[in-house]
Design a protein around this nucleic acid. Structure first.
Lengths: 112, 112
DNA sequence: GTAATACTTAGCCTCATGGCTCAGTATTTG
DNA sequence: CAAATACTGAGCCATGAGGCTAAGTATTAC
């Protein structure tokens, strides 16, 4: 469970960076080499590689090196961590019988 | 659209911190004062307040101060930003006709 | 009206993040 | 085999995030 928490944290942290989210999006269209991916971002290769490693160490992508080219592949199942977290939030909300926040929110909007 | 990107970024950044995710979860059960929320975390009130402000400025919660007590309320709709992002990823994936990554992933697993 | 409560503000400190350069290493290519 | 390619490793640097203390303000309680 502490393990689980660490995993959730890693995934959210990995996705908190716009470059990394863009890599995930790009890899959604299909695998790509580090070099090709890097070409789409305004930074040097070593800098970009850090993002690749972050994504890989948090399980969002997998990579393989063949010859001198490292190919990156999206690990779609990993996005389920985010999905699950959202589902959990919804479940907590749905447990509630009252809907106090709606009331409060409405009151707050009236003040504007 | 740049506006949209900034919003997505803010929400992901806000959720990248475990304390803030926990606050979101806690507020899912109902509104709470800053003091009550802070009591659940091992940090000082000023430190905790920064998290509250981050959540509020990124639209994940709303707060109102009545007398000397500031009450926090979850803004559930804001989680849709994450939901939408995930849906977008799924849509990108589903556009694809081939399923090359599955092949690559399978090949990689065989190597282990 | 004094004291306690519940934040707020200001300012400081440390470490992690994200970017860079420069110098490898390993693979192709010509 | 020499040169180009595609990373990789090491190390530096600036910024910002997240934590702290100390002091201040506004409300409420006694």
């Amino acid at each position: 469970m502490a393990q689980y928490l660490a995993e959730v944290d890693g995934v959210f942290v990995a996705l908190a960076d716009p470059t990394r989210r863009e890599v995930v999006r790009r890899l959604g269209r299909g695998p790509a080499s580090v070099g090709d991916l890097a070409g789409e971002f305004p930074m040097t290769l070593p800098s970009f590689m850090k993002h690749v490693r972050t994504l890989e160490s948090n399980g969002l992508i997998r990579t393989v090196k063949v010859g001198r080219v490292r190919t990156c592949v999206l690990n779609r199942e990993r996005l389920a961590v985010v999905d699950d977290w959202l589902a959990e939030q919804r479940a907590i909300w749905e447990e509630r019988t009252d809907r106090l926040e709606q009331l409060v929110t409405d009151l707050m909007e009236e003040q504007e």
